[in-house]
Design a protein around this nucleic acid. Sequence first.
DNA 1: TTCCCGCGTAGACACTGTCTACGAAGGGGT
DNA 2: ACCCCTTCGTAGACAGTGTCTACGCGGGAA
Lengths: 195, 195
Amino acid sequence: MRVARESDTGLRDRLVDVGVELVAREGVQALTLREIARRAGVSHGAPRRYFPTHLELLSAIARRGFDELAARAAAAEAGGEGTARARVGALARVYLEFALEKRGMYELMFRHDLLESGHLGLRDSSLPLFGRLVQLVGRVRPDADARLVAGALWAGLHGIAQLWGWGSLQLATGVDDFAPLLRSALDAHLGPEGE
Amino acid sequence: MRVARESDTGLRDRLVDVGVELVAREGVQALTLREIARRAGVSHGAPRRYFPTHLELLSAIARRGFDELAARAAAAEAGGEGTARARVGALARVYLEFALEKRGMYELMFRHDLLESGHLGLRDSSLPLFGRLVQLVGRVRPDADARLVAGALWAGLHGIAQLWGWGSLQLATGVDDFAPLLRSALDAHLGPEGE
DNA sequence: TTCCCGCGTAGACACTGTCTACGAAGGGGT
DNA sequence: ACCCCTTCGTAGACAGTGTCTACGCGGGAA
C-alpha cells in the first residue's frame, strides 16, 4: 500500500489544479491533455490512468468551477438578512461577477461539447443553486410560475454573461458597464426594485 | 482569363456550401478543414487559396447563418401589420426557432473562438437586426431606455436558445416546451401581452 | 510557339488524443 | 530473504488536424 505524505497531493488532484490554473491564465483552448501533463511534470500518457478520456479531465476541471460558484453563492447568502428581492439580486450579481471574472472557466463550464454527457456540474451544483433561485423568486412574485420566471431570469443572466463577455452587448447597446443591464433584467423579471 | 460556366460555382462558394451542409448535418466539430475539402472533392490544401486560415472559412460559413437569420426576420416583418409588441414577439420567435432548428449553425455563429476576431456577422447582420429591435422596444416601452431593455431581452433569448438547446432548462424548470419561457421573457421585458 | 500565371496537388511539419507495451518501485505472503 | 504482484508512470506508435512550401497542370496572351 502507498503511504500518503502531507505534501503528496497525488497526480489526479495535481492535474486538475494545473488545469484550473491554466484555464484561468490562457483560456479554454490551452487545456490540452499534453500541455496539462507537461505542466504537471509527467508524460503525456500519465493522465490516462486517472482520466480515461480528455473529456473526463476537462469535466473534473469544470466541476471545480461549479463548486466555486456554489461556494460564492453560499457565501453571499450567509450574510443572511434582506428581502427576497435583494437576495435574488445578490445571487445574480455573484453569478455575473463569477462569469466575467473567471471567463475561461465559465466558458468551459458551459461548453457542453467539452464535458461528459452526464452534465455533471449541473445536476450536482447548479440544480441546488437553481432551486434556491426558484424559492426566492416564488417569494418575490407569488403570482407567477416561479420556475418559469427563474428559468427566464437564469437564461438572461447567462446571455448577459456570454454576450458581454466578448463585447457584443457593449457594441450593441453602447454602454460600458453591465450593471444597468443586470438591473434591467432584474427589474423586468422581478418588478422594480422598490417593490 | 477564366470563363465562368453557369454550373461552375467556383471552389470558394462550393466550400462554403459544403460547410453549411456539414454543420447542419453533423455539427460544429465536423467542420474540419480537411473534411470540408474532402466533401468538396479537392485536396486538403485547396481551400487555402481562398481562405488563408481555417477561421476564415468558418467565418464565411457563419456569415451564411447570419444572413439567413436576417432574411427570416425580414420575412417575418414583411407581413407588416400588428402592434409593436406583437412584432417584437414575432422577431423573438423567429430568433428562437432559428437557433433551435439550426443548432449547429447557431452554435458556430456564437463561438467567438472559431470566428475571425472582427466579429463579422455581428456588425453586418446582427446590428441592424438589433437596431430594429431597439426601435420596436422603444415603441412598446417609451418609459425605459430602449437599448438597455432590448439588450437584456436579446441576452434572454440567447440564453434560452443556448440553455434549452442542450437540455439544461428542461431539466431545471421541468417544462418540455420553450414557448412558456419565451412568453415569460417577453412579458417580463415588455409588460404583459394585453398591453 | 512560348511564356506566364491562376489554381489545385502532394508532401512535410508540429501538434493533438488515444492505445499498448513496457519498466520501475515497493509492500505482503511464504 | 526471496519472489510475486499490483500500482503508477514512461515511451512509442497511430490516425487525425491546421499550416506551410514546393511543385505541376493547363489555358489565355504575346
